[in-house]
């Protein structure tokens, strides 16, 4: 039993903070959503393009009490270890992991730390699964904006508190006078409205 435990500890990946970002730039604007897998687990959300779980919200979020991301963190660190091995191998040839990650204009990709993982990579589906799992956790908004489902009001949130609410002008923020469309918020990001 001691032997089994010893081997388990040896094989367990070393856990450390890692950032997992889903990114896509398109003519509508840049979509970016990052999960920082560390002790202060946060989510930076500059788009609702990749998941609609938090509806019309942009900003920074903290993991709600009672939620855990240990599994996701372990999986991401395992993938990162694989990538780093490939990176070291390629570096010796004057190349890099990112050199072999084709990027298509407007194509979505993941960044695991500074490593770009394109849609055609064998690890992209795994990352997508982890990303979706993280998205489904409960998140508490710390900073940013929130728009009501009826598109009538826009609330600003700071330090986890609502600091102001004003009428939301769809025609000003969005590309059309009426939905559907996409809306831009300076320094906050982009929201797609169905």
């Amino acid at each position: 039993m001691k032997f089994v435990l010893c081997c388990f500890l040896f094989l367990a990946p070393v856990l450390h903070a890692a950032n997992l970002t889903h990114y896509q730039s398109s003519p509508e604007g840049t979509s970016l959503q990052t999960f920082s897998l560390s002790k202060s687990m946060t989510q930076t959300r500059r788009t609702n393009a990749f998941d609609r779980s938090l509806k019309l919200r942009l900003g920074t979020f903290a993991l709600a009490g009672g939620e855990s991301v240990v599994t996701e963190e372990r999986l991401v660190n395992g993938i990162l270890a694989q990538i780093q091995t490939v990176e070291e191998t390629l570096r010796r040839r004057g190349s890099s992991f990112n050199d072999l990650s084709p990027v298509k204009p407007h194509g979505a990709f993941f960044m695991v730390e500074n490593f770009r993982v394109s849609e055609s990579s064998r690890i992209y589906p795994e990352l997508l699964k982890i990303f979706r799992s993280l998205s489904l956790k409960k998140w508490r908004q710390l900073e940013g904006i929130r728009i009501t489902d009826d598109l009538k009001s826009l609330t600003t949130i700071r330090g986890g508190k609502e600091v102001s609410t004003q009428a939301f002008s769809y025609a000003f923020h969005c590309n059309r006078e009426r939905p559907p469309g996409y809306c831009l918020f300076k320094d906050q990001g982009i929201l797609f409205v169905d």
């Binding site: 694989q82 990538i83 390629l90 084709p102 990579s121």
Partner: peptide, 20 residues
């Protein structure tokens, strides 16, 4: 070229344990 790049990357990722 893009397919070849990603195939090589995928091959190396699959051999990460061996490379280590």
């Amino acid at each position: 070229r893009d397919q070849a790049k990603v195939t090589l990357q995928n091959y190396l990722l699959a051999r990460a344990e061996v490379l280590r």
